[in-house]
């Protein structure tokens, strides 16, 4: 399979002059689950937002993003979504007065074949209990993220960028979420998954390691996980919370 997404020499500097991305090169092949690992502050979410056109509609300082053979720099978020590229945010927004059913129907408006009840079931939520609930603060963080995953299944995009969508979901359910990613892939959605969880990274077809604004290695996920644990965590002595989180996961 060829690359569905190509990121070429992508650089991003903030208005204050801080360099977040320093020439990222990344290929995501059609039909794969590609995991992006990296320490906190490496630029993972910035990269995800630039690929999707989100994060306040910022544009890269330099470089190209090519999706499905077309350069998409400058295209707004909704146009990229219509082309089949979407993003699920780390903390998806909540909406007063909008039911889960309405939210999923909005997501499915360009996919007439979507079966919203089936998508809810696939993320482990019973439609009888959830369709008429509001997508507001009454949902737990985990429920909201599952609904976001269901909405992506309803959209059936060519590529979904999932920015730590697995955080806040309990460990017992993580394998279930991993299986869901596989189902999404098997149903035709390529995934670029940003995660800190080893068991999510393990289900990937390929992985890349982002460090200090650059991709330092791409390849077999197990190899990348090892590199991440050995090299990145050593660097992260000043970031004990992440070290603790990874240790907890490894246990």
């Amino acid at each position: 399979m060829g690359a569905l997404l190509e990121v070429r020499n992508l650089k991003y500097r903030t208005e204050e002059g801080k360099e977040i991305l320093k020439g990222v090169n990344l290929d995501v092949k059609e039909g794969e689950i590609h995991v992006l690992l990296g320490p906190n502050g490496a630029g993972k979410s910035t990269l995800a937002n630039l690929i999707a056109g989100a994060g306040g509609y910022e544009e890269p300082t330099e470089g190209e993003i090519i999706f499905d053979g077309k350069v998409i720099n400058g295209k707004p978020l909704y146009e990229r979504a219509k082309m089949g590229l979407t993003i699920a945010f780390q903390e998806p927004a909540r909406f007063e007065g909008i039911t889960v059913e309405e939210y999923l129907k909005l997501s499915a408006r360009n996919n007439p074949d979507a079966d919203i009840e089936s998508c809810l079931r696939k993320v482990g939520l019973d439609p009888c209990h959830y369709l008429y609930r509001f997508v507001d603060d009454s949902l737990s963080g985990g429920e909201r993220k599952r609904i976001e995953l269901a909405s992506i299944m309803c959209m059936k995009p060519k590529l979904a960028v999932l920015d730590e969508i697995d955080s806040g979901i309990d460990f017992v359910s993580i394998d279930e979420i991993g299986n869901l990613f596989k189902t999404m892939r098997d149903e035709g959605t390529t995934l670029l998954v940003i995660t800190h969880r080893e068991n999510i990274a393990n289900i990937a077809d390929r992985a890349s390691l982002l460090c200090d604004g650059q991709i330092v290695e791409t390849g077999d996920p197990r190899k990348i996980i090892k590199k991440f644990e050995k090299e990145c965590l050593v660097c992260e002595v000043q970031n004990p919370s992440l070290v603790k989180e990874v240790k907890v996961q490894n246990n």
Partner: peptide
């Protein structure tokens, strides 16, 4: 909120 919906098209 806007971006979450715009990501749906």
């Amino acid at each position: 909120q806007l971006e979450t919906l715009m990501a749906k098209g």
